[in-house]
Design a protein around this nucleic acid. Structure first.
Lengths: 230, 230
DNA sequence: CAAAAAAGAGAGCACTGCTCTTGCTCTGGG
DNA sequence: CCCAGAGCAAGAGCAGTGCTCTCTTTTTTG
């Protein structure tokens, strides 16, 4: 029999689990990860705090679940934005994905902090989060791959000798059909994108950059040029 | 009379304040900001927790003090690294400052998280932190300024019209003697530097980039090219 | 239908930040 | 010189936290 009709108990379990995550996400959005309290979640749901441990063995496990959801939410936003301009020229698709990341981060600052800010507990990031976390990167790789069919700019400067073998290893892992030069720059651009977004979300641009949307667009356009687009 | 000899009481106060910060910094380095506990600090210093409130009115105030110290420590490291190559060509000085930021961050990951990761409490960053936080940026601006005396590469692409006035405003605030094109790219490069560093410190490069020093050097060299250096 | 598994309730432990009151000690102005 | 007031430490206590343990109820399963 299907797992959805496996009895009232199983159904209740996934409903309660969802309700816990929903309320936890609300508290996260309202106050940040530091103030997320298991007891407050339980209280809001009308259950006693110890009952919550039947669903999440610890506060950190709850947070991990929220982290994965956040990665998925961000990935889905980026993919949707990309799909909306799927037929456009690569540069335009690149900018669309970057702007989707920025928009999501501004709309969900605490969740952004959870996944791209400081690691919250001792530090965790269990392997479970890897596939969800990779979605934006995969998107960017795909755009560059498509662009390589057409004409691209040269990537400068050339790889220094000390980086050659490492660049080839990363390329083999990530996108064997691209050149090590491009992949290296792409990985750097990927991290730099989050530098731009992080500075805006965490207030580092306060009283410095005001017109942030055009500033961001210009910066990620330059990033795109760096990987050979446009 | 000098403020250093203003009586045993005043001297004791600054000594105790320093001891508190020292112990707090030790706990911060060991366990991270989340687990920094006023009571534990007091316990370690052989005082009762309530006594500590004579020196820092709240846990957040203690954290703010540590934040300022962290900015200063990072700024001092960067300035020292810059001074050591003060006569070199601008590109080399740029790379030296960037690598100093990276080295400091890797040596003090929790302090780095404190200042460039997620804002810890509701969020604070009181104005007091601004001058300390600006030191690295000032260094980078100075390098670019010096480079403008000699030959530089052109900055591409040109500023879009929608960014023109904002770029001029930022330039007037930051470095009126530089062109808006360069200043805009410089601000972006500044944030992107912290994207590179943050991804390494927070483990986003795990199992992806292994030879991180040459990778970083290459990436910041490209950043330097972007602002016209080299 | 009875045994077993799952879930909730409640008490309790050890910890946190923070406040308030009670004393002791040092210091500056009369 | 001396003594009132400021500075400081200590202790008790409040409200909250994550988490564990036991006990009871409910549901599923052999």
């Amino acid at each position: 029999m299907s797992s959805t009709a496996r009895g009232a108990r199983a159904r209740a379990r996934i409903e309660v689990t969802a309700a816990i995550k929903e309320e936890a996400r609300r508290q996260l959005a309202a106050e940040g990860a530091a103030k997320l309290s298991l007891r407050a979640v339980a209280r809001e749901l009308g259950m006693v705090s110890s009952a919550l441990y039947r669903y999440f063995p610890s506060r950190d496990d709850l947070l991990t679940a929220l982290i994965i959801d956040a990665y998925d939410s961000l990935g889905a936003s980026a993919e949707a934005a990309h799909a909306a301009v799927a037929d456009a020229v690569p540069l335009r698709r690149w900018v669309a994905v970057c702007e989707a990341v920025r928009d999501w981060a501004l709309a969900h600052p605490h969740e952004y902090a959870l996944i791209y800010g400081s690691p919250v507990p001792g530090y965790s990031a269990p392997r479970t989060t890897v596939p969800a976390a990779a979605r934006v990167g995969i998107l960017l790789i795909g755009i560059v791959r498509d662009a390589q069919q057409g004409q691209t700019r040269p990537v400068e400067p050339p790889l220094p000798a000390e980086l050659r073998s490492e660049a080839e290893r990363i390329t083999a892992d990530l996108a064997p059909d691209l050149s090590p030069e491009v992949v290296t720059v792409l990985v750097a651009a990927w991290s730099q994108l989050y530098g731009l977004v992080g500075f805006e979300v965490f207030g580092q641009f306060n009283r410095l950059v005001e017109e942030r949307a055009p500033f961001f667009r210009h910066a990620v356009t330059r990033l795109a040029h760096g990987v050979g687009l446009g």
